[in-house]
Design a protein around this nucleic acid. Structure first.
Lengths: 185, 185
DNA sequence: GTCTATATTGCGATAGAC
DNA sequence: GTCTATCGCAATATAGAC
């Protein structure tokens, strides 16, 4: 058992929920999503991950380091997402909008956590800015039309933003697809 | 002077920056916008409004009451905004998108403050939900097409959401207008 | 690697003077 | 209506045992 974990490569460890550091990031992101910044205290994060506060602080020496860990994981997940978009070929923009409406995925949780942090953390703002740029570039390269690319991205942003406030995102997606059809998309 | 303020009607007082309660709400909203929830402490709000913490707590007996005051003001501003939309006649949807890109207005500040609070306050979430419903109803009644109404609203939401992350909103608005033209709007 | 203290700071809220 | 002083509490972070 110990030998197995010792030989596990980093790329695999990054997704292993039995890894304490990863479990701490999961707990942090989930608490940010569900209870906001003031709910994501070190005590609460540690408890949710099943360790003590001291245990948490062994892995992440400060709250700033915990935030940094969360944002670095977001960067990795976005890289993977852009690769998935490109793998969708002709349907790249549809894949983008459909996954904008998706909830509960690791990327979604990471994104909500980051936009929560962005409220008072400039590094989180930077991460989100870079994420947006990567998505726009992929959309623009695919559609060959900055007007369409930006409009599709804004619609996706709107769907993401309104997860908390609107009716089902499936409903919203249906309306949007009807309009995109009129644009030949 | 005292006689003047004593005879001031409520509707006027609500906008009078020399009124302490209104100044406190301004300070609260601005601090929420610029520094997030944890920056909008009672001490900071009081200082920005030019009173002491005790002075603040005379007008708003708790932080919960301060939040309530901010959300109630948002409701009033949204009512006025919907009236302005309807006054725009044929250009209702354009007015909506153009003002979605606007920053620095009282409504804009109130909205950002509420979406900041919504992160961990259910009443703020409700206020934003009601706001969205009022806007959708106005758009849908004007356009006579739920698909278009929802798409326009999502684009507006996206523009609002991305104030912090994207290039100028004027640029975004230009792209969007090009696409709307293709839809006969 | 994980735990239990404990030090320290900063916030919300109360009390009472002016 | 506004102020200062103070209490109580919760959050970050440290120290040191196991």
């Amino acid at each position: 058992m110990i030998g197995l974990r010792a030989s596990t490569r980093l790329s695999a460890m990054a997704r292993n929920p039995s890894d304490t550091k990863e479990r701490l990031l999961d707990a942090f992101d989930i608490l940010l999503d569900k209870q906001g910044i003031s709910g994501a205290t070190l005590d609460a994060v540690a408890a949710k991950a099943g360790v003590s506060k001291g245990g948490l602080l062994y892995h992440y020496g400060s709250k700033a380091e915990l935030i940094k860990g969360s944002l670095e994981r977001l960067d990795r997940l976005v890289d993977e997402d852009v690769a998935s978009m490109k793998a969708a070929g002709d349907r790249l923009h549809m894949y983008y909008l459909e996954t904008s409406a998706e909830t509960g995925t690791p990327l979604d949780r990471s994104l909500i956590a980051a936009s929560c942090l962005a409220q008072e953390n400039d590094e989180a703002k930077d991460s989100l800015r870079k994420t947006r740029e990567a998505w726009f570039d992929a959309l623009n390269e695919h559609l060959g039309d900055p007007d369409l690319a930006m409009t599709v991205q804004l619609i996706g942003d709107g769907m993401y933003f309104n997860q908390n406030f609107s009716l089902s995102q499936d409903e919203a997606l249906k309306h949007v697809k009807n309009v995109l059809a009129r644009l030949g998309l």
